[in-house]
Design a protein around this nucleic acid. Structure first.
Lengths: 230, 230
DNA sequence: GAAAAAATGAAGGATTTCTTAAGAAGGCTG
DNA sequence: CAGCCTTCTTAAGAAATCCTTCATTTTTTC
């Protein structure tokens, strides 16, 4: 659900794909490149927040690529390497990498490192960060912190509740049918979901509305679905 | 006090620059010198909070420089060296280095060490003679002495335990997630850290709480993290 | 006023999060 | 090397919570 783009540069398609799957699970958008030249190309056309770079690549290797990238942009680079000896090469050059991972690596650990770097660079404001806070008449959604508050008063939502609010607030004003909500939050076909969603809606209102009977934020559109006013 | 000045002393311009970039990313102001003599010169004219010193330099080497600096000021020095033999470390530290990094090094790690030293010296009151004592309902943290006591009864904490308590007491009332705690105490991405932190929390409670089952100080906020009440 | 749609309340079982214990791994010291 | 201390890992159970279902009531629309 985050708004980050990570570029994975590796000549091994399988590795690219595996990394891609794990990152996507975290809501991170993944771009892929097969080698350094392709990576530079991608950087020209896309906003990239972090680069995962395999050091051993054809055409242009990781070290050269790092130099090229650093000439242009100061975005975090995490290096991936097969051997400890390669690591030494990287470190010997003492440039570029913000972190590094040796193969074989644990994908979850890699994801943790990616997120850590992203968080660090975002808070430092090294690159312009997207506005991750949506404020709708006092109802505030902080996407980065995954938190919601009403007039400054923090509200504790359960994971499902949060995802519903997130969906409705990101698309404020648009009406979502119960089935749409179910399919986008639960990510599975909505069989017999009417009441389930309704109950969650109620719980959410209980938490974010001053008067749940006369909801100010989370409104029903009769016969169609629910929405949060823009 | 947020503005730190770090002096980087190295005859290799590229290394100076790379280090400079990383420190600036952390909001640290960077001064540079090419060798020991220049460093001494800079110290005369500027406030410097920490020195990064390459051991191998022309004119005046790192060891000599350290002596010279120590004659005048007691500021933290982190040595950088290509030598990895233990003897060198010992020599460097005996001479007065507070920390020691061998080339090739990970810039991130270097930054972490710099920040760690700065934090330590600041809290120790080396710069400002503040013996800050935090007293939260009988739970007392003496930062200068790095000691904790409960109702006058001294408590012996391990280094990690101390850092956790320090973090929570300095930010009393604020809730820290397990990942936040891990990243701020361990200074690395929190992969698989849940239980590690949890165990330390338990150990701390065992030491500072009268009834660890019903903690009076170190409280859990369900689903969010831990805090120490203001 | 009847039918459809939406809201509510309560209860259980499932799931997540926390706590606790015990032992392994690693470092330091005599 | 042995013993001690700190830290980390594993695992199992406890506690808190979350989710769904069902039964029922209220509201809206025609």
């Amino acid at each position: 659900m985050e708004e980050y783009n990570v570029l994975v540069v590796d000549d091994d398609k399988e590795i690219r794909d595996v990394i891609g799957i794990y990152l996507k699970n975290e809501g991170i958008h993944v771009l892929k490149a097969e080698d350094g030249l392709e990576a530079i190309e991608v950087l020209r056309c896309h906003t990239v927040h972090l680069i995962l770079l395999d050091i051993m690549m054809p055409r242009m290797d990781g070290i050269q690529t790092t130099f090229k990238i650093r000439e242009q942009k100061n975005i975090p680079i995490i290096m991936i390497s097969a051997k400890t000896e390669d690591m030494d090469k990287i470190l010997g050059l003492q440039v570029g990498a913000d972190d590094y991972v040796t193969k074989p690596f644990n994908p979850l650990e890699l994801v943790a490192r990616v997120k850590s770097q992203l968080r660090r660079y975002v808070t430092l404001g090294t690159y312009e960060k997207k506005n991750e806070v949506i404020d709708l008449n006092g109802l505030v959604l902080e996407q980065a912190e995954k938190r919601v508050s009403v007039n400054g008063e923090p509200v504790r939502l359960t994971p499902i509740e949060y995802r519903i609010v997130d969906l409705l607030m990101r698309n404020a004003g648009r009406v979502f049918s119960i089935h749409e909500i179910y399919e986008r939050v639960w990510e599975e076909p909505s069989y017999n979901a009417e009441n389930t969603v309704a109950v969650h809606i109620r719980k959410i209102r209980e938490k974010i509305e001053i008067d749940p009977k006369n909801p100010r934020y989370l409104k029903v559109v009769w016969g169609i679905g629910y929405k949060i006013e823009k």
